[in-house]
Amino acid sequence: MVSAIEIEELNVSVAKNIKILNDIKLSLPSGKIIGFIGPSGAGKTTLIRSIVGSLKITSGRISVLGLPAGSKQLRNRVAYMTQELSVYPDLTIKENLNYFITMMGINKKSSENMLSDLLKTVELESKSNVLVSNLSSGQKQRVSLAISLIGSPELLVLDEPTVGLDPVLREKLWKLFKTLSEQGKTLIISSHSMDEASRCDYLVLVRNGKIIADQTPQNIMEQTGCTNIEDSFLELVGGKE
């Protein structure tokens, strides 16, 4: 198994030594959809921000695509979709995408094709000249996702990308995630929804800043003797307490 991410003895604490992540060790496969699953406040976003290098870690080592997390060389290779929308509400979809395309260093010649491809991928072609503030929350979410897809990154880190979306749109996004992983991209998707876990190729179950399991969904279910991830999670949590 080729690893996209290697984490060794990662600890993250905030003020007054409150531990958010506690001695994390992980080796995550490349070209797969990896789900970071756990309840709110478990430490998923902190783990994600440590991986993309936007958070100072207290101790440990994180290697992303063979380089230290947050390296300058990773800025074109790793895309990060934050939990907040992180788009400009007072710009149109097209203006948002064009700006971020330029920020990624993509030349003008390629940018037009890229813009139309992105709009097509997130099905917002007809709304390209609409201000983001006038879109529904699901549409805003798709604009944010489109920005993450700029420049064809090798690793996509998406923090709760499907939260608040209707089932039809969620289904479409998961199809898109599958397509991206079939193209060889690695996707990290955080969610607190257990029904999304079964769609992932690999799972990292997080609780109270610790990893309680990291396996394929099948292996986790086999080990716990359960028929679904939710029961497995509860079994693992029960076993720990």
């Binding site: 936007s54 990060y80 990624m104 920005i147």
Partner: peptide, 13 residues
Amino acid sequence: SSGTLNRLMTMPI
């Protein structure tokens, strides 16, 4: 506060 600066800082700007 909206996260756009955070996002930009993960890019090559």
